[in-house]
């Protein structure tokens, strides 16, 4: 199965041939990759490749369907490439967090009809408030965070339809 992922916001494409709870095989950049699960606990996974090299990986689920994987000398945020298209369109519409911060106030709710320029939520970052405004007339499909949530820069905060 062809798959596309974002690693630290850069996209990579590969084809998965085997995937079960103990083995994963995929072809990437003309190379066949094979990893077998050696050990796992709550948030740790030890993998072994075809050359018997072992990798100790630490896994953490983050908001926005992102998996934070740390190990083998690299920290990486991985997410489905499709969710990035959403992120991108959000970015164009300005419904993303301009920088890391805290959701200070949510002023609109799902289903609410809003007009262009209406403030949907207020983000508090670097001791300043940033209004996240509707980029068009429409209906709020979803507000993705609640008051007090911490968000990373670039994360989509709301969806309009």
């Amino acid at each position: 199965m062809k798959r596309s992922l974002l690693i630290n916001n850069s996209s990579v494409n590969f084809e998965v041939s085997t995937l079960d709870s103990s083995i994963v095989e995929f072809e990437w950049g003309g190379k066949k990759m094979r990893f077998e699960v050696v050990e796992r606990s709550n948030d740790m996974l030890v993998l072994r490749d075809q050359n018997m090299q072992q990798y100790r990986m630490n896994l953490t689920s983050l908001p926005g369907q992102t998996l934070f994987v740390s190990g083998s000398g690299h920290d990486a945020e991985l997410t489905e490439a499709s969710s990035m298209t959403k992120k991108k369109s959000g970015a164009m519409g300005g419904l993303t967090a301009p920088m890391p911060g805290k959701v200070f106030k949510v002023l609109a709710k799902a289903g609410e009809v809003v007009t262009k320029g209406q403030t949907l939520l207020i983000l508090e970052a670097m001791k300043m408030e940033h209004a996240i405004k509707a980029d068009k007339d429409g209906k709020v499909k979803k507000i993705l965070f609640k008051e007090g949530d911490l968000v990373q820069g670039g994360m989509a905060l709301a969806e309009l339809e």
Partner: peptide, 29 residues
């Protein structure tokens, strides 16, 4: 670079965790 083979274990870990199946929460973990 993300294309580096050094990220292969990360991809494997992602696939094995089945993260895609995490339900679309309201930003919850």
């Amino acid at each position: 670079k993300a294309e580096s083979v050094e990220f292969a274990p990360h991809i494997a870990a992602y696939l094995l965790s089945g993260v895609k199946r995490v339900s679309k929460g309201e930003g919850t973990v």
